[in-house]
Simulated assay, not measured.
Amino acid sequence: MFRNFKGDILASKTMIHENIPSVFVAEAIACMQAVIVGRDLGIMHAEIEGDSLTVIKKAQNTGGTN
């Protein structure tokens, strides 16, 4: 979902994916899609928010897969 500086919704997108191996991959795909939508809208500067706890845990995990 894209919001302007006032919090108004500018755009929203929903996608269905199958066979996503982990929450981390789902978050990465969502981030990529947000960047693509922003680019398509001509947005030059953006702040991307998401489930940072999942990203942090995955980055800290050096021994296995989640």
Rank of each mutant, 00 (worst) to 15 (best):
S12W: 08
F24L: 08
A59Q: 12
E49T: 08
K13T: 02
V25R: 04
T62H: 09
A11D: 06
L53E: 14
I56T: 06
K13R: 09
N61M: 02
L41K: 14
C31S: 12
M1Q: 04
F24V: 06
M32T: 15
Q33D: 08
H45W: 06
M44Y: 04
F24A: 06
G7L: 01
E18M: 09
K6F: 13
H17D: 14
I20T: 13
T65H: 12
P21E: 10
N66K: 10
T54S: 10
G7M: 01
F5R: 07
D8N: 08
M44G: 11
I36T: 12
K6Q: 13
A46V: 11
I20E: 10
R3C: 06
T14I: 15
I36E: 15
P21K: 06
M1A: 03
G50A: 08
V55I: 14
D51Y: 04
Q33K: 09
I16T: 14
I56R: 03
N4S: 08
A46E: 13
T62Y: 04
G63C: 11
D40Q: 12
N61L: 07
L10R: 05
V23M: 12
N61Y: 10
A26E: 09
H45M: 14
S52M: 15
G38N: 06
G7T: 07
A26W: 03
S52P: 07
V55P: 04
P21T: 06
G64M: 03
G64S: 13
S22W: 07
V23W: 11
D8L: 01
D40C: 08
V25L: 00
Q33H: 09
G50T: 02
N4C: 03
M1F: 02
H45R: 09
T54N: 13
R3S: 01
D8F: 03
A28H: 01
E18G: 14
I20W: 04
I29S: 01
G50Y: 04
M32L: 02
I43L: 13
L10M: 07
I48E: 06
S12A: 11
F2W: 12
H17N: 11
A46F: 13
K13C: 07
I56G: 00
K6C: 13
V23T: 15
V25P: 00
T65K: 04
T65E: 10
A34M: 00
L53M: 14
E47G: 15
R39F: 07
I16Q: 13
N61I: 00
A46M: 13
A26Y: 02
E47D: 07
